[in-house]
Amino acid sequence: MSAFRATFQRELLLLWAGGGALAPLGYFLGATMLVPLAMGPDRALLAVAGPPLVWIAAALAVLAMLERLFQADLEDGSLDQMLLSRAPLELIMFAKGAALWCAIGLPLAIAGAPAAIALQAPVERAAMIVVSLALGTAAFIGVGLVGAAVTASVKRGGVLIALIVLPLFAPPIIFGASVAAGQDVGAAISILAGCALGAAAIGPVAAAAALRLQAE
């Protein structure tokens, strides 16, 4: 078994044992539920503001997963073993991100369809919303790896991660929310795919560089 596959399987197993997508999904749906409670059930208003707010909720749900992402590995010595692996740390980071996306990102993307529809997005747009959220969560996780890695040694780093990562979330939010709102969908989705690819390429490399420093 390759180091990539071993890492991917192990991370999935650990995420699953920690409750899987249950908590982030619940958080996502709960945050979405607060939107009509805050704005009132006015359909016209919701139809405009609702779908973009689904994106905010998805971003926050990913953000909430990041704090412990590397902290546990740093504290219990797992990071040292990753450094001694026959695969480069960058690849292991990619495997970790991929596992997080499968366990959390994809379920969030799928749950995004009913959430957006509940917030008065047209039903025929649901498929596009799922695709865009799948790309968007990949971008969030990619840049999130960097934020989690540079703050791994900081106790109670949750607020710090948010401060660091939120500016990096800006591009995918912009294009993702455009898809959800049905504006210029074709262009938005291709740029969103670009964001996801870029984050998947840069995130693991920068995270690995930061974690090598953290292990010193």
Binding site: A3, A6, T7, Q9, R10, Q81, L84, S85
Partner: peptide
């Protein structure tokens, strides 16, 4: 799980 993971890693 640990034994399998490490076998893959190393």
């Amino acid at each position: 799980d640990h034994l399998r993971y490490w076998a893959g890693l190393f």
